[in-house]
Design a protein around this nucleic acid. Structure first.
Length: 369
DNA sequence: CACTCGTGGTT
DNA sequence: TAACCAAGAGT
């Protein structure tokens, strides 16, 4: 077929046949061995998460839980710990719920239709379409952030996101082929990840540049247009590092909400801060709201962490509990030597690191005059 | 539609 | 360095 008359899908599939990224969840070239379990697991892990971050987690999960039945039988705490560090922990809770539905109610087989997939926990419009197309060969319209960018540029869509979503979906539908919709979707994502990037796109080697409306403009990166974003507020609070007999007190956080279901250190409430940036702790005083009595040391600098919608600064308080001390709340004494196995989310892993690796920097209690 | 919900890499 | 952003879902 002459290049001039090749469709967008034709060019993209040829690009994919020559340049597809080799990724652990993709079948080897020339084979059709698509395991829906692996497709589903990879798609959930890849939600709002980069390929580089996902790969080691995907390898660890598939080695430990080779089938959806294995995953369904996993211990809740073990799964949450295995997910620790990957973020968006509702995905891990929904992953387990979904695995148990598939294992117990569907004989361990994922549904093949987009509509049925859409009803599973943690499977939204994107993931249902991606699984239907990639794992089951269905023609589904797969729209993620890469596709949004590529399509917005292909057609120079002037409407800003998120209002442009309907038009982008319609355009994507129009260029999605009947056959190989899964390869087409993965080709779009490969293109978006490696050529049609947010900044500095490699238009010179793009297989679609001849028909790209944005390439014909002065600045292809102007697309997609986006609505202005809100400023990220600053919050601050206290975190308590309580040691007893070479163990630290860890809590199990409530199942819902921020870091829901994960282990963590006890903290105060996090209060909106008038100051836009965290400040070093300056005053020596008995901290308010400590879980136990006694005296406290304190790290000279707070631990800072940036979440999606706010930034946090935690003052780290260090105390010692008596051997017969009764702790409030749902928690356990975790051996300090095994703190790396506690499955702490990054925020609390930062606190642990700050305490255990910079003990020389402690703010010692001032001697009483 | 608007908001919550993590983290790490890139620029 | 501060900002931006990633194979989005749930409410």
């Amino acid at each position: 077929m002459p290049v001039e008359s090749a469709s967008v899908a034709d060019r993209l599939l040829h690009y994919y046949d020559c340049h597809a990224r080799r990724l652990p969840w993709r079948a080897p070239p020339g084979t059709n061995a698509t395991d829906p379990y692996r497709v589903w697991l990879s798609e959930v892990m890849l939600q709002q998460t980069t390929v580089a971050a996902v790969i080691p987690y995907f390898e660890a999960f598939t080695a430990r839980w080779p089938t959806v039945a294995d995953l369904a039988a996993a211990d809740d705490a073990a799964l949450m710990s295995a997910w620790a560090g990957l973020g968006y922990y509702a995905r891990a809770r929904n992953l387990l719920a979904c695995a148990r539905v598939v294992a117990r109610e569907r004989g361990g087989r994922f549904p093949s239709s987009e509509a049925e997939l859409r009803g599973l926990p943690g499977v939204g419009a994107y993931t249902a379409a991606a699984i239907a197309a990639i794992a089951f060969g269905a023609r589904a319209v797969v729209v993620d952030a890469n596709v949004e960018r590529v399509v917005a540029r292909l057609f120079a869509i002037a409407t800003p996101l998120p209002a442009a979503r309907a038009e982008i979906r319609q355009r994507t539908d129009a260029i999605t082929p009947e056959a190989r919709a899964g390869d087409f979707a993965q080709a779009m994502m490969d293109l978006g990840a490696t050529i049609c990037t947010v900044r500095n796109p490699a238009c010179g080697i793009c297989p679609l540049r001849e028909t790209c409306a944005a390439f014909a403009t002065a600045d292809p990166t102007a697309f997609p247009l986006k609505a202005a974003k809100k400023a990220r507020p600053q919050r601050s609070g206290d975190v308590w590092w309580i040691v007893r007999d070479d163990a630290v007190w860890l809590e199990r956080r409530p199942a819902k909400g921020l870091l829901g279901g994960m282990r963590g250190l006890p903290t105060s409430a996090w209060i909106a801060d008038a100051s836009p940036t965290p400040k070093p702790t300056t005053s020596i005083q008995v901290p308010i709201g400590a879980p136990i009595g006694g005296q406290w040391d304190r790290l000279p600098m707070p631990v800072t962490h940036v979440f999606t919608h706010f930034a946090l600064s935690l003052t780290v308080h260090i105390g010692t509990a008596d051997s017969d001390c009764t702790m409030p709340g749902d928690g356990e004494w975790w051996p300090l030597a095994a703190i790396g196995d506690a499955g702490l989310p990054t925020l609390f892993a930062k606190v642990a690191d700050a305490v255990m690796n910079r003990e020389d920097a402690l703010c010692r209690r001032l001697p009483q005059p």
